[in-house]
Amino acid sequence: MAAAATRCLIAVLLLCVPVADGHARTVQEPAESLRFAVIGDFGTATKQQYELANVMAGVRDRSPFGMVLTVGDNIYAAWSRRAVVDRFETPYRALLDAGVTFFASLGNHDSVEERSYPLFNMGGARYYTVTRSNVQLFALDSNYLDPAQLTWLRQELETSTAPWKIAIFHHPLYSSAQRHGASEELRVALEPLFVQYGVQVVFSGHDHVYERFKPQHGITYFVCGSGGQLRRGNLGDALSPQTAAGFDLDLVFVAVQIDGDVMRFQAISRTGAVVDSGVIQRVATP
């Protein structure tokens, strides 16, 4: 396991843009940029979740982001007021008090009530789209990808004029993790649409690790499933050749900044260390 961990870290160091001090840096936000964070599989009410949430708040203090995208498994418990307070409202209190808006997608552990929970901003829907600045976000329900949802997605993508199209949903189309791995069924259904309509970035969770893939058909895929619990060492000894970076030693969230055609990201661990970072250049679709 130690060897795997070392190799994961080496992969990160080799394949990603290193950051000088190994911690999240303060960056001045240009007037028309969009900043957000991404977390997944977080609603555990564990000490680790709270610690990562504190790191998120600290990063936001230095580099204010206005929204957080969640990739599901937001509340690991039957729905109750207590569960929401312990697993969401308390750990992210600093972000909520600062006016940060959460946009949630549903995982296999989530309750139907979450669709109507105002702080998840789902508007009562299983899937929805939101546009902020030059980014259109498509929040999908990968747990039940029925023809009606696929038709909706095609129509929304067809009519989207946003330069950046980003999809969030729970089950990863690519994942090297041993617990679940990639969902090829979903990949067959979704990836052709993403390619056809120019989705550039996809965030998923489900596997409780962090992983980023080299662009697949022009799309960068992230697994951000270690927002509240970790499957340490779950990336195993053999990372996929498609993997650009992986980290399975601690909880992680991803901080993103989009300026024009450039997206910068940092994967930040519970200790505040930047375990992956890089730049994605938007390529205009024909």
């Binding site: 039957a78 039940y144 990808l145 023809p147 067959v188």
Partner: peptide, 14 residues
């Protein structure tokens, strides 16, 4: 209550 919902394959739903 509290049990996860397993994914239903899109190819089946179709």
């Amino acid at each position: 209550e509290g049990e996860p919902l397993a994914t239903v394959p899109p190819s089946l739903l179709r």
